[in-house]
Simulated assay, not measured.
Amino acid sequence: MNNHPAVGVEMRGLRRSFGQVKALDDLDLDIRPGELVALLGPSGCGKTTALRVLSGLEELDAGTVSVGARDITHTPPNKRNMAMVFQSYSLFPHLTVTGNLDFALSMRKVPRGKRQAIIDEHLELVGLIAQRDRYPHEMSGGQQQRVALARALASKPDVLLLDEPLSALDAKVRVQLRDEIRRIQQELGTTTLFVTHDQGEALAMADRVGVMQAGRLEQLSTPRELYERPATEFVARFIGDTNELPGVVSAGGVLVMDQWVPALPGSIREGRGTALVRPERVTVTACEDHVDGGAGKMATVRQLSFQGDHAVVHLAMAESAQELTAFVTARETAELAVGTDVLVGLDPLPVLVA
């Protein structure tokens, strides 16, 4: 199934205030044709306002919005050729699955004779062709959200908007539908903006992830780049887990735990600072396995939490009151136990120093 050619989105200098609160503060955001961009950030950061501005449901105080070569800043929502999937399924309870899609297509003025083929095509896409005659109350939450997705895509929108569409589902269904949405989006090549509070969803689904704070975009990067090379202290602290370790910066690197590691761009240039180190970059070695001459600082295992494929180890440094968290493989936990002494070190990978 092929959609019409994908288009890009350009949002320039967006400003929107509610009283004294700046929901969008000179925001710039680009979405490439066929790309899925996810917006993350704390409550009130402006991510939902940005999505609503793109949809036309929120007016701007200043700025421009373009889709393809067309300026749609002042275009009403029903003329923007966009479709939105919300957290709530928003299905008509008195209509069947087919009826819900048929009504949406009729509102788009799709000729009656063409609707059934389009409906069948999109129900097949989301795996619900066998449930076409069911009513919403006869379906699970995951199935209802698939209907909402099929309804949105049936109109062949230029841009698909996803407003926390998975947050009402239980964990297992959420992961399944997350993967389904990503598969369908890639298959169709529909340009998509996805707003979520769930970091795992954003990192798993998006081509690029934007982290917002106070109406501004802190960083827009691939999931790997965002996690491994955060551009700002806020991003480093907000995405994933970090250890905050004292260090001294000089010559483009930082001396931390008696090891020298490179400092990422955006770090302080010189002097004392705090190195933000991911837990998986902390190495933990049982004392009896330690090779003489290798780097390592003595620590004590305070807590061990088994997570299936890995374990979280909470450590207390012997030379200070510093606490440290490490992620280790499940196999490595066989030689670790609460109260035992270990040697810890750092992988020599770049870190951000604040």
Score class of each variant (00 low, 15 high):
15 R>T: 14
343 L>A: 09
34 G>S: 08
32 R>A: 15
343 L>T: 11
105 L>T: 12
19 G>C: 05
149 L>M: 05
283 T>I: 04
63 G>M: 01
60 L>M: 07
130 A>I: 07
227 Y>K: 04
94 H>L: 09
165 P>R: 04
154 A>K: 11
7 V>H: 08
73 T>V: 02
333 T>F: 08
175 V>Y: 12
298 M>T: 09
145 Q>T: 11
54 L>H: 06
10 E>M: 07
290 H>W: 15
118 I>G: 00
21 V>K: 15
188 L>F: 09
132 R>D: 06
89 Y>A: 01
252 G>E: 08
304 L>P: 00
79 K>D: 14
237 R>F: 06
157 P>L: 00
98 T>I: 11
350 P>C: 00
212 M>C: 04
226 L>V: 08
337 A>T: 13
139 M>H: 08
158 D>N: 14
249 V>R: 11
229 R>P: 14
212 M>S: 01
309 D>R: 12
181 I>R: 06
352 L>Q: 08
277 V>T: 00
58 E>G: 00
276 L>M: 08
99 G>D: 05
279 P>G: 10
178 R>C: 05
282 V>I: 12
281 R>V: 07
226 L>F: 01
155 S>E: 12
128 L>G: 05
301 V>S: 05
247 G>L: 07
233 E>S: 03
38 A>M: 05
354 A>L: 13
48 T>L: 02
146 R>Y: 02
319 E>K: 15
153 L>S: 01
306 F>I: 14
84 M>V: 00
317 M>N: 12
265 P>H: 07
294 G>Q: 15
226 L>T: 09
87 Q>E: 06
326 A>H: 04
58 E>D: 03
27 L>E: 10
339 G>A: 13
258 D>S: 13
319 E>W: 14
182 R>H: 08
286 A>R: 10
123 L>Y: 08
324 L>E: 02
261 V>S: 02
77 P>F: 04
294 G>V: 14
174 R>M: 04
191 T>S: 11
56 G>C: 11
28 D>V: 08
335 E>H: 15
115 R>I: 09
292 D>N: 06
108 R>W: 04
52 R>K: 13
211 V>M: 01
314 H>D: 15
135 Y>I: 01
149 L>V: 06
312 V>E: 11
55 S>L: 10
270 E>A: 15
221 S>W: 07
325 T>H: 12
106 S>H: 02
225 E>M: 09
257 M>A: 13
171 A>R: 13
150 A>Y: 06
34 G>M: 03
252 G>F: 09
80 R>E: 11
189 G>Q: 06
307 Q>N: 12
140 S>D: 00
16 R>L: 05
102 D>K: 02
331 R>T: 15
